[in-house]
Deep mutational scan, measured.
Amino acid sequence: MFYPNSPQTSPQLTQIPYGQQYAMMQRQIQQPYHPFATTEPQARLYPYHYQGPIQQEQGGFITQQSTAASPQYVQMRVTPVDQSIMSGYPNQTANGSSSSSFNYNIHPQQQQQQQQQQQQLRHHAMPVGSVPLQDDRYRKQLIVNYLAPDVTSTDLHELFSRFGELDGARIIYDKQTNMSKGYGFVYFCHAEDAKEAVERMSGYEFHGKWLKVGYSTNPLNIVPSNSSPYVHAGSRGAAG
């Protein structure tokens, strides 16, 4: 039997160049792979992502010199942007860049009308829970959420009447099932009393439920100042 490094198959040491006398086997001759043993700084910083320098080929596509990437890492192929796409944008300079302001050559009167329309939209648009300043009635009506099913309009009136005089209180019921929808409205005579009720009743436990109280901004629920107070009856038909 002959071994790869046996004296019968191995040459004389004098015939082997210096430095390879003890590297006779194939696994010894093959050098191990060192990912950080390279002179390129990109490979030292990113050993798993770097795959060699990027070269520009004919046709405008950018390719990489090395083989496919590892399945664990996804390499994105980048193509140059066609400058003709950006030619339609206004205020574009000769080098292809555009300024931040756009001039669509709008007539001054049209621009003024658009600004007025935007101001009107901001004036009428009102986020949930906010209180408008032009109508004091919005500051007097509250919406009470997360009410228990057994709470009546009379219970709601008695709960909030300790903060001040009320114009009314009612629970909203479903017309088909005649069941409470879980929320109601309270109408105060003074805005200061309503503000105190919002601050003190939010998070209050009532009939096993934690109440959420806020201003009601729905104009359909506003009680006119010259109208008669609501009837605080315990029956659902009268309260709904």
Rank of each mutant, 00 (worst) to 15 (best):
N5Q: 04
P7R: 06
P7Y: 15
Q8L: 13
P11W: 15
I16C: 09
Y18C: 07
Q21A: 11
Y22G: 11
M24L: 07
M25S: 08
M25R: 02
Q26F: 15
R27W: 15
R27Y: 15
I29S: 06
Y33T: 10
Y33G: 05
P35M: 13
A37Q: 14
P41G: 12
P41V: 13
I54V: 06
I54Y: 13
Q56W: 15
Q58S: 12
Q58D: 12
G60F: 15
T63L: 15
Q65P: 10
S66K: 07
A69G: 04
P71I: 14
Q72I: 15
Y73T: 03
Q75W: 15
R77G: 05
V78T: 07
T79W: 15
Q83A: 09
Q83F: 14
I85E: 01
G88D: 06
G88N: 03
G88Y: 14
P90S: 13
T93E: 13
A94R: 04
S98C: 07
S100C: 13
F102M: 09
N103P: 13
N103L: 14
Y104V: 11
H107F: 15
H107E: 03
P108I: 12
Q112D: 09
Q117N: 10
Q117I: 09
Q118S: 07
L121R: 08
L121V: 07
R122E: 04
H123N: 06
M126S: 04
P127T: 06
G129Q: 07
V131A: 11
P132L: 10
L133V: 04
L133A: 04
D135G: 04
K140P: 01
K140F: 02
Q141S: 00
L142F: 02
L142N: 02
V144K: 00
Y146D: 00
A148S: 08
P149Q: 08
P149E: 02
P149M: 04
D155C: 03
F160H: 09
G164Y: 01
G164H: 03
E165Y: 15
G168N: 02
A169N: 03
R170F: 00
I172T: 00
I172C: 00
N178H: 14
S180T: 13
K181R: 13
H190Q: 09
H190K: 05
E192V: 07
A194M: 00
E196A: 11
E196S: 06
V198M: 09
R200T: 11
R200Q: 11
M201P: 02
H207W: 01
L211K: 00
Y215H: 01
N218L: 00
P219Q: 01
L220V: 13
N221Q: 13
N221W: 15
V223D: 02
N226L: 06
S228H: 14
S228W: 09
H232W: 03
A233Q: 09
A233W: 02
S235E: 09
S235A: 10
A238Y: 15
A239I: 14
